[in-house]
Write a protein that binds this DNA or RNA. Structure first.
Lengths: 223, 223
DNA sequence: AGATTCATTTTGACTAATCAAAATAACCGT
DNA sequence: ACGGTTATTTTGATTAGTCAAAATGAATCT
């Protein structure tokens, strides 16, 4: 059985490789940063994960999941996102507080509980942040969305995902009506100043940094 | 924050001390056995728990929880039993499979989740095995019940608790209508042979060893 | 191409938790 | 009170995971 440390390494390698180019190696530096360990620790761990056949380690270049490693990582990610969904939908917890909770629970629940949770929640496709939940068969939707930093302006949009897990940011997004499901419109964008202005249907305009806007994924909606 | 190993030691010390005489020391041997470690390991850990002020260690005699240790232990036990209740009542899992699951989850859920689970379940007083759930204020009901090995014969009884966590035994109990809530009657008891016979309302009699009968706690019912 | 910079790996050391086996203390019966 | 049995503690080692800091290799920039 994989320890929760191992599960965490695999999960973060998966997340980083989804973020990067397809088939690319995940560099050790990024991995170490994601796991909040010093680089040397990540290297040590990479060697043992490679010995266990869970990752491929190209020394001095980076790591990549094997098929088996990916299987384990997807299972952990599925647990994480279903647990988050459970905590918000059933226990009515705030979506901004749910991440650290799921971070621990994802290593504690069995596949049996996972399946029952999935059924209880009605086999949801995404978690409360809009992050896709890997299917039981290990399929992870990779639909690519525009962000408030890149989308067309003036058109009505629906927020589909918020790719940040810090409570601060999530709180901010909720307060300003930018949670998944919300409808907004980009009223202005100034690349030089690094500013995006958005407007909710009947609200006053709100200014966001490009960095923040880039974390809000949207899809056009028939207006 | 206490590690899950620490939480486990404290929980088992609590369970063993509840089982024994009030105020008695829990011997190291029993503790080591309960935790499935060699005695030397339990001694080492006892020293560090004592240093942390969680237990009192009387070398060569045994251990006892301090007020703080008891507080932590009760919190863990509360999590364990509420999780079991959740798994059975909400996720519809079998009561015989739920113990090992809760054994991991009890260390992974926060007090926040604990409280919400408690509310969701309607503040239950006992878990599916009939074991009392410590209150949020740290009160643990210590009601003392007769067992099928010690109760009056011929009278109608209600099963209130089954003090075993092995899936085999729980399965057996359920198959034979001896889960909490069931009504039974002791039709015979032979101390010499170590046998107890019980009968369900409309069922055929069932023979149990005294050891097994001692694990089924019952209360008289107006009949 | 050569030197500098930056990421990565190595090395040595540490903590938590464990075991095996030797040493020691407590208890119990005569 | 003595000797033997049994429980407990000590001692020495092991494993997983980590850090700090030195060593090394890759990449970049004139």
């Amino acid at each position: 059985m994989a320890t929760s440390t191992v599960e965490n390494y695999l999960k973060h390698i998966l997340l980083l490789s989804e973020a990067g180019a397809a088939g690319a190696l995940v560099p050790m530096g990024g991995l170490a940063a994601a796991l909040a360990v010093v680089p040397g620790t990540a290297t040590t761990m990479a060697k043992s994960l490679a010995d266990a056949g869970l990752i491929e380690h190209r020394p001095r270049h980076g790591v990549r999941l094997t098929a088996e490693g990916r299987r384990v990582a997807l299972n952990v990610l599925r647990k994480h996102r279903l647990v988050e969904t459970f905590l918000v939908n059933v226990l009515k917890m705030d979506w901004s507080t749910v991440h650290p909770e799921a971070e621990r629970l994802e290593h504690a629940i069995s596949d049996e509980v996972l399946d029952r949770l999935d059924a209880l929640l009605g086999h949801p496709a995404t978690d409360p942040h809009g992050d896709p939940i890997p299917s039981a068969q290990g399929k992870l939707s990779t639909e690519v969305h525009a962000t408030l930093a890149t989308c067309a302006t003036a058109r009505p949009l629906r927020v589909v995902r918020v790719t940040e897990q810090s409570a601060e940011f999530l709180h901010f997004a909720e307060k300003n009506g930018l949670a998944p499901g919300a409808t907004v419109r980009v009223t202005g964008r100034n690349l030089t100043a690094g500013l995006v202005t958005v407007k909710k249907n009947a609200g006053r305009p709100l200014a966001l940094s490009l960095a923040a806007a880039g974390k809000i994924l949207v899809t056009p909606v028939r207006g």
